[in-house]
Design a protein around this nucleic acid. Structure first.
Lengths: 228, 228
DNA sequence: CAGTATATTATGTGCAGACATAATAAGCCA
DNA sequence: TGGCTTATTATGTCTGCACATAATATACTG
């Protein structure tokens, strides 16, 4: 027992078998290192990893205890839409519906924390799986931050793909909602208006500057999948 | 520059400023350690962390390169429902609607990979925020794995809460869908049938044994939030 | 020239020791 | 007793070194 993985698994076993119950204080790193016959750094790596997954609570001086109410963390991977579709075994297709440059409505300006009058690039595009509408991309790009956004040819390459290589971001946020699809969206997806669709809204930032905000509307029945 | 965080940030900066572009091979750990004036282990920690977030691709002997198409990873935290509601500043309430023990329908048996005839505990309960329905919990528990599930008093404590301290799990999965809420669900949530609701379905396992599967139906308009 | 054995190389990990840091406990003084 | 200072303790991290492991490049052999 001298690899951090083995120690990780052993500690996990003790938590699962309730040898160490939620709320319990577990032995300190030095003692565990002695028990397992390894260096303290090795124990540290194992416990740190478990703390990152939320199973352990660690505080200097206070010690390490088993988390009382662990919060499950589901990681949702958000791949390139092309990849997403191809990974499902379908042929990828893309069609630009509209492209405009001009001022944005208040809701978009608020999301991007941008001043009135700043012109944005607005794109509406449909991603197809086996020639059937798969999802609608409604995107606003801040050309003041993303150089070349005004001149890029979005009829050939999707903004989703173009931005990945032309507009790095430092952070962002994502909201997931179930919404009755509005008429225009439903029409583009070739479904009935008002059907329940999964809508992801994502806004990304480069430090303090808003890069882009996008609203991805999926067809009714679409599932988002993740492991715990 | 001798902490792994500083090195992490500096490497991140070089990726963001495109000093190192997607697909580029970056210097090896030994060289970076020399450049930054620190130990190789320190560089390793920084690069390993970046690789975990998906920004770097590392392979033995082949070296480290900037990921060509980084996959965004959104972490969705799934807290105890009580906490979720209380964190939103509302008063938590809970009401058990029904409790039955018996055989499960085929769809549930399939999800849990359980044989015909195995009796399961079936619960239907409503979680309230400020006395208003917040979400409906439709749960099936495998009492062969979860000791005490048949006798626990679910009128006082929600299964959501009880299981957390009585039924540890090793892994599980989660699917997120937008669905028109069926009449019974809508009635329990006091909304119109057919409205678009966000439905999370979660199944958890203890090694090879299914622990429980649950369907959480949110009120229309509910948002799931996450950072990138 | 094809196929296999061997060397090389970059990352992955372990160890012992040291110091840093945060949080608590103990001691002290008014 | 209340509030401040000081010791103690567990985790956090860095260093220098060693060896393990995987993937690739090179040399060799039939």
């Amino acid at each position: 027992m001298n690899s951090w993985q083995e120690i990780h698994d052993e500690v996990l076993r003790r938590i699962h078998t309730r040898q160490w119950k939620p709320g319990d204080l577990i032995p300190n790193e030095t003692d565990l290192a002695q028990e397992f016959g390894c260096a303290r750094a090795t124990v540290n790596r194992a416990l740190r990893t478990l703390a990152e997954t939320g199973l352990l609570d660690r505080r200097r001086k206070a010690g390490t205890r088993v988390t009382l109410h662990p919060v499950g963390k589901a990681v949702i991977e958000i791949p390139l839409i092309r990849r997403d579709i191809e990974d499902r075994g379908a042929r990828y297709g893309y069609r630009l519906i509209s492209r405009q440059i001009g001022p944005a409505p208040a809701s978009i300006r608020a999301a991007l924390r941008i001043e009135t009058g700043t012109p944005l690039v607005h794109l509406l595009a449909c991603h197809l799986a086996d020639a059937r509408p798969y999802l609608l991309e409604d995107r606003w790009i801040n050309p003041a931050v993303v150089l070349g956004a005004e001149t890029a040819d979005f009829t050939r390459i999707s903004a989703n793909e173009w931005l990945l290589t032309h507009a790095p971001y430092t952070h962002g946020n994502l909201t997931i909602a179930a919404e009755p699809l509005p008429p225009q969206t439903a029409a583009a997806l070739q479904v009935a208006a008002g059907d329940a669709g999964l809508v992801l809204t994502r806004t990304t930032w480069d430090h303090a500057s808003a890069v882009t905000t996008v609203r991805l509307s999926h067809r009714p029945g679409h599932l988002l999948h993740s492991t715990l």
